[in-house]
Structures are given as structure tokens and as C-alpha cells.
């Protein structure tokens, strides 16, 4: 498993996390290239079905969902609703027997390029440990 390079889908809100990832890039920070980013208007837009759909795809091993910090939502409250949805989704995935760490959540602001790089590093390391995802394939 040493040379296993996971593919991870990142679902990022337009206003904070996407900008944070952008900043990481313009600051020339290095982080693993295992993540493929999809931009959504707000973390509140993330339907749990997006996560499920990711896992149906060939070769996807993990999902990272990221949005603005609580209180910073561009739409004022979107991420508060998202937080409840993610909390439930997290419990649901665990209850069905999907390993912890396959789906992760983070708050990354537009100024946190360095945090973004760290978050991706952690997610990639976690998923490398878990190995390829073969469920739902």
C-alpha cells in the first residue's frame, strides 16, 4: 500500500475555502496533489447526495467538504445549516459502517492558505492509512 495515491474530491464553498485554496496556491505552498476541487456557492449547498455520488465514481477514495468558519458565511447562515447536516451525515456514515475519515469536514477561511495545506495533508494521510475505497463500486 506504500505507493497508494488516493483520489479525493474536495467540495469547497466559493467564498472562503476556495479562496483559501487559491491563496495556498498563490503563496506557493506545497501540499499533496491528490485532491480534485469542486466549487459550490456555499457549504449549505452541499447535498449529502453529492458525497454519495462521489463514492460511486471509479477510484474515488475520500471526500473533503469545506466552508467558511461559523459566523463568516457569505450568506450569513448557510454554514450553520450545513453544520447540522454534516453532523447527521457523519453519524449516518459511521452507522452504516463506512470508516471514519473517508468523509471529512473543515472550516477554512480566505486567509487561511496555510491551514488549507495542512487540512489536505491530514486528509490525504488519513485516507492513505485507510487504503482504497471499494464500497459502492
Amino acid at each position: 500500500m506504500a505507493d497508494f495515491e488516493p483520489k479525493i474530491v474536495g467540495i469547497l464553498c466559493n467564498w472562503c475555502s476556495y479562496a483559501g485554496a487559491d491563496l495556498a496556491g498563490t503563496s506557493r505552498l506545497k501540499y499533496p496533489e491528490n485532491i480534485r476541487i469542486i466549487k459550490v456557492p456555499c457549504s449549505g449547498r452541499v447535498n449529502p447526495l453529492f458525497i454519495i455520488k462521489c463514492f460511486q465514481q471509479e477510484g474515488i477514495d475520500g471526500v473533503l467538504v469545506s466552508g467558511c468558519h461559523p459566523g463568516d458565511c457569505h450568506y450569513t447562515t448557510g454554514n450553520y445549516y450545513a453544520r447540522r447536516k454534516f453532523a447527521l451525515m457523519n453519524k449516518m456514515l459511521d452507522f452504516m459502517g463506512i470508516e471514519k475519515g473517508r468523509v471529512q469536514f473543515s472550516w477554512v477561511s480566505g486567509g487561511e492558505g496555510a491551514k488549507w495545506a495542512k487540512v489536505v495533508e491530514k486528509v490525504v494521510a488519513d485516507i492513505k492509512k485507510l487504503g482504497p475505497f471499494t464500497k459502492f463500486k
Binding site: 445549516y81 453544520r83 447540522r84 454534516f86 453532523a87 457523519n90 471529512q104 469536514f105 473543515s106 472550516w107
Partner: peptide
């Protein structure tokens, strides 16, 4: 209903969000 609502301070956060 809980899913149409939120609680700024008390909803779980640090427990599972980085």
C-alpha cells in the same frame, strides 16, 4: 424541525470539523 434550524453556540463543531 431541527434540520431547518441551527444553534450558533451549541451545535457540534470541533468534534468533527477541522
Amino acid at each position: 424541525p431541527a434540520i431547518q434550524d441551527f444553534n450558533k453556540k451549541e451545535d457540534p463543531d470541533k468534534e468533527f470539523i477541522m
